[in-house]
Amino acid sequence: MSTILASVAVQNGSPSRASLEVLSRARQIADGQGATCAAVVLSPDASAVADELARYGAQKVYTVSDPIFARHINTPVLTALEAVIAEAQPSIVVFPSSEGVKDVLGALAVRTGAAVLPDVASVEMKDGGVEALRPVMAAKFMARTRAEGDLVLVSVRAGSYEAVEAPTEAAVEEIVFSFDEATLRQTLREVVGSTAGTVDLSDAQVVVAAGRGVKDEAGKQLVEELADVLGAAIGSSRAVVESGMFPATAQIGQTGKVVSPDLYIGVGISGAIQHVAGMSNSRIIVAINTNPDAPIFDVATYGIVGDLYKVLPILIEEIKKVKAVAA
């Protein structure tokens, strides 16, 4: 029987939301094909999440446990995934489209002789091949693409599918992994500005995103306060990452991250296509901008033409009030 394999990333001890989304999609495809839905986890303690993966439909869980996976380094990830693919013999491997995955996808495809459909918004089996819709031209259009072959690797944009529980029993198979440090022709010297432990932007249900309209420390504080009262993750445009006001991990868009929260609030962001490419899939988009002609209003569900320095303080107070009443 063939296998549809979902690659799962562990964050703060749990599978990331984007991972559960691809696992759910893998389960749907497997059910449609009469195939097995399997998951693979690389982590210092991979078996710890096996139960959670079974809850989301994994009938088989391949675990590779090694301390080296505490931080991302591409060579050991490649070696481990190659070993799991050799063992599981999947016809499709689906990945969440994270930076860690983007780092290994091309090399893994060459190593395993696979065809790749990167960063897709949807994926399905059709007439014996794998078809996917991919945003192209800075997400102005969708390209319908098709890959054939014994093995197809697919990475899926965050928020393309819903994570749905489909409880089952999972057989856990620990893949023996030994890594020869001598073959590691790279050293990870350090990780700086790590946001691990905070709400991950791609996983967040509410995002407050700041653009160049946020001009100073006072503006930045307003954005942080709004995010705080909403329990939101903070995103940003490229302009304010460039100016150093927000960290690069906050950048949303073609170069940055793809987000698809229930609620995205863009403040002082013009809505350049390269930014919109990363957030147009949000369920509700609110834009606050002084310029009524700003392109962000073309994708906004609710547009507020106004000065963020006037609107945000009132908005923060109002939200505090309603939260206090609700509590």
Partner: peptide
Amino acid sequence: QGDTGQEIIVL
């Protein structure tokens, strides 16, 4: 630029 921070890698 990684998912959660900047990785300094020596090649």
